[in-house]
Design a protein around this nucleic acid. Structure first.
Lengths: 365, 365
DNA sequence: CTAATTTACCTAAACGATTAGGTTGGCTTC
DNA sequence: GAAGCCAACCTAATCGTTTAGGTAAATTAG
């Protein structure tokens, strides 16, 4: 069966292309009887609308893009769930653009992605990383609104909306907990400043360390497991006294670090305690189970999507009034969500197997 | 700055829209001097091509879609890497469509996704799951080629190309290994037949069990961790004698099962051995480390992408000769890739902690 | 020097939808 | 029964590209 167009349906039914369009898109100006006849013909011909033609003609856009670097960070799944819940999938199309290659952020990929989104006149963007300033500007020039999640806008575009974890507060909480354990030497293994969540996390830990009279060392590494492992190995080789506690900035870094500690026979938490950012599926099943700071990624995704929808609706309303289509950003479009600390064995909690209270006699090697 | 079109560039430079189009798309019929002038004007105006208009006019499509259910299965990352390596990103746009909601396959989402891909006249599809027959047929009707990866086409469309693991052979290998440990009662916790890899895995285990004189029980569950946990709990409650070994059909199922075993205090591998399908990042760091069958997902992705590109090229060539654009599928388009068994502690191997010596150890098949 | 070819460009017709702006004929309304 | 209105349709323009089919001038061939 050949690909059919509205003109084919028009020929078959005898109605004009106008009437066919109106009938299929649910607009008025068509009698119920005619509509049924047209829909029936469309079904028989196997008609499917051509989105390119539709988008070319229509002002209204219905595709939003999520920009992320590496979907291996499992928070991404919750984020998506939250977004999907806020954007009715029959009305919106959500596409995901991963700007990481082999788990590592790639600047050229980001440029290509932005170009692509502008080419297809995307309705809006949710970005899980701090975009390069020129890219944020480019999107703004094309009136494409951007909401940053779990990351802040670049300083040059500070007024852009964002939904983030209150990283400073959350990290203070982490620090206070570590102080409670009596740890004095903290090592923060962290990804580059490209992901802006780093700043809040670092300053929160720093403030907590200062209050507790602890010593904080910040060790930066590229944002993947292999680099994290190598960077940490180098650090441990160079320093006679290992830290009391290792704070892993995110999941891939934790993975790299844990692999190294295991291979070197460093007991956790006996020889060195560990805490990490971001919850992940296996956190309770590793040896030992890992204490993590759990962001409410689903809530972040939901709020970001709602926000984006509001901004796009605002643009449309302005467009109908003949006003500027530039996205309007207001201060309420900067929100923070709080996080929870999930206490497990790696930080030194539950040492005596309190876990067994829940029904396990599971023993670590 | 307002959005500019080719007409704007034409006005500014004095050249016709034709010449502008040729200059920007790199075609001939334009002098180098004029081309430079036009490109400069385009840059100054901030021109970005309108993809909707381009796609509407052009016959050639350059977007391929990956259909997957739940990106939490980590094989997806390797798969993507393989695909990206075979499809030059400056020439092709790859989009990912996840047809799972909260980690579970959703039939309505699949329907919506297929509809969407046809609407946008996608060039080709790589599907990581066995599509519903009517959807495979629909894509075929619109001359959109499909390559199945890690899953077979639906029986109604058996001639469709696919790249899969040789599941039967691989599962025989798993079974032989289990038999070598002396286990006699095997419990295969498996996802629904929706994912066709199930058949090869099941029959391979069955044949191996039969040869080894072992007893295989197949326990089907919905394809997510929570369901797996519940199904397994029910089974253990109903049967006085637990199996000697649990074989987890994939990652989410393994996660659910391990959580249950831990909470019930069942020692692995002491009380019950465990092996699983599909490698994952934390496999060496769980307690105990998990023996898995590792598919070569990257190679699968690479081959599928190469195959798809060949088929699309074939369509174009046929189109230029005025022949049918239907994708041409040949027997060489059904390929199998072999897998490797990664031996770790959960199956009963490496009891004495040899792992720490080598970091991880595996055996090629 | 003429004819043939090549180069550099242009005009205008698509592609397949949406929509502004008609035109009917039938039905009210007073 | 004239005026007004509405429902149900149609015609034709339009979105921003690509491309088939030209033309005019410059270059080359014989």
């Amino acid at each position: 069966m050949a690909r059919s167009t509205m003109r084919d349906i028009s020929r078959v039914t005898g109605f004009s292309v106008f009437t066919v369009s109106r009938a299929l898109s649910g607009g008025d100006g068509v009698s119920e009887q005619s509509r049924e006849q047209i829909i029936k013909a469309a079904r028989e011909l196997g008609y499917v609308v051509n989105r390119a033609a539709q988008e070319l003609r229509r002002a209204k856009r219905d595709t939003v893009a999520i920009i992320t670097a590496s979907t291996s960070n499992s928070y991404y799944l919750d984020l998506m769930a939250g977004i999907q819940r806020a954007l009715d999938p029959s009305e919106w199309t959500v596409i995901v653009g991963d700007v990481a290659v082999n788990g590592a952020y790639d600047a050229r990929l980001e440029a290509r992605m932005i170009q692509r989104l502008i080419e297809s006149r995307t309705a809006g963007v949710i970005s899980a990383l701090t975009l390069q300033p020129e890219h944020a500007e480019l999107l703004a020039k094309w009136d494409i609104p951007v909401v940053f999640v779990d990351s802040s806008p670049p300083p040059e575009a500070a007024h852009f909306p964002s939904v983030t974890t209150n990283n400073h507060k959350a990290s203070m909480m982490v620090g206070q907990h570590l102080a409670g354990h009596g740890y004095k030497n903290w090592l923060f293994l962290v990804y580059p400043a490209k992901w802006s969540s780093r700043f809040g996390r670092e300053s929160g830990l720093r403030d907590a360390a200062s209050i507790a009279g602890a010593n904080l060392v910040v060790l930066e590494t590229a944002n993947d497991s292999a680099s994290a492992r190598e960077t940490l190995a180098q650090y441990l080789d160079d320093h006679a006294k290992p830290p009391h506690v290792l704070i892993a900035g995110n999941n891939p870094l934790l993975l790299g670090a844990m692999g190294l500690l295991k291979d070197r026979g460093i007991q956790v938490p006996g020889d060195m305690a560990v805490v990490a950012y971001d919850e992940f599926a296996w956190s309770t099943l590793t040896d030992p189970s890992i204490t993590v700071l759990n962001e409410d990624s689903e809530e972040i995704g939901r709020r970001a999507a709602v926000m984006l929808r509001e901004i796009i609706d605002g643009q449309e309303a302005a467009g109908r009034k003949g006003q500027s289509q530039s996205p309007v950003y207001v201060p309420e479009h900067r929100q923070q969500v709080s996080a929870r600390l999930m206490l497990r064995r790696s930080c030194g909690c539950l040492e005596s197997g309190r876990e067994t209270a829940k029904g396990s006699s599971f023993q670590a090697a």
